[in-house]
């Protein structure tokens, strides 16, 4: 007898079942039953945000180089296991060629953002001219915990294209996976768990977007939102409105994530705050300032 696997959530580096004990059936594009996935609840969101907040300090404090190494490690692990991911997609009803292309672009994207990790800061930082005895400079800082509504059209490339630029900049994420095709995202979490990505940096929930998105969008401890457009646009607009209360920055994505224009430095800086520092400098004997 064939047994359908029940995929679990990914929270704090662990794979727990949903606190609610619920699950739902995931089918292939042709309507064949594939597996069960957790139907996450509001409390799972609460738990995920809590661990994402806890993980943020240490993740942001790592050197950019170290984050780069860790993201590059994801690419290596994904490369080693790409057969599994391609099989999974073809079982879900994708053609071999399409599945192959999707996974290869996922690996590319990891390498691409690993490269950006220690470079974007220099490009968007500045030393500012001021009319006083100050050395005045602006540098980017991560925003904190970012809520992500993953692309609902692709199983993995959208998911990866959204989270990588957010975490490479030192943020942590709570992701609502593709509701109809959540399996690849959860399998990808197994890669994350074995790639030196600290627990809590990426947290993934599966379930109903209608049920979960308002809770995530209204959560006061979530600092920003990345929303990939879904068929149910009113839900996205509702999320934008709920985000106002604590001034979450909201990113709306309408990209075809397989394209090259779905990657770039702007996806990183969308989730950076600029901090400007005024550092007093001494002017000796009326001489000109050093800066």
């Amino acid at each position: 007898m064939e047994i359908l696997k029940t995929y679990k959530l990914y929270i704090g580096g662990q794979f727990p079942r949903t606190e609610s004990g619920r699950s739902y059936l995931v089918s292939s594009l042709a309507g064949e039953p594939l597996a069960n996935a957790c139907l996450a609840s509001r409390k799972d969101i609460r738990n995920a945000v809590q661990v994402a907040r806890k993980a943020h300090g240490a993740w942001a404090a790592k050197t950019a180089l170290n984050r780069s190494q860790i993201i590059y490690r994801i690419a290596e692990m994904l490369e080693a296991r790409k057969g599994q991911f391609i099989d999974e997609l073809s079982e879900a009803g994708f053609g071999m060629e399409e599945a192959n292309a999707e996974i290869l672009s996922c690996i590319d994207r990891c390498v691409y953002y690993a490269g950006w990790a220690d470079k974007f800061q220099a490009l968007i930082s500045s030393v500012n001219p001021v009319a006083s005895s100050h050395f005045n400079f602006s540098t980017p800082e991560p925003m904190g915990v970012v809520g992500v509504l993953a692309c609902q059209n692709t199983p993995l490339i959208g998911f990866i294209s959204q989270i990588l630029p957010i975490i490479i900049g030192g943020n942590t994420v709570v992701v609502l996976a593709n509701s109809k095709m959540p399996l690849s995202a959860i399998s990808f979490c197994e890669v994350l768990a074995t790639s030196d990505v600290p627990g809590g940096v990426v947290n993934v929930l599966t379930g109903s977007i209608d049920e979960l998105l308002p809770t995530l969008a209204s959560h006061m401890d979530v600092n920003a939102l990345s929303l990939a457009t879904v068929s149910n646009m009113p839900k996205v607009f509702e999320a934008q409105e709920l985000a106002i209360e604590n001034l979450k920055r909201t990113q709306l994505l309408v990209h075809d994530f397989k394209n090259q224009d779905a990657q770039g430095m702007e996806f990183i800086t969308d989730f950076q705050e600029i901090k400007t520092t005024w550092h007093p400098i001494e002017q000796i004997a009326g001489g000109a300032g050093a800066y």
């Binding site: 969101i45 609460r46 945000v49 209204s218 959560h219 006061m220 401890d221 209360e245 604590n246």
Partner: peptide, 8 residues
């Protein structure tokens, strides 16, 4: 109805 943040 909103989950809260220690910030506030």
């Amino acid at each position: 109805g909103r989950y809260q943040s220690a910030t506030y």
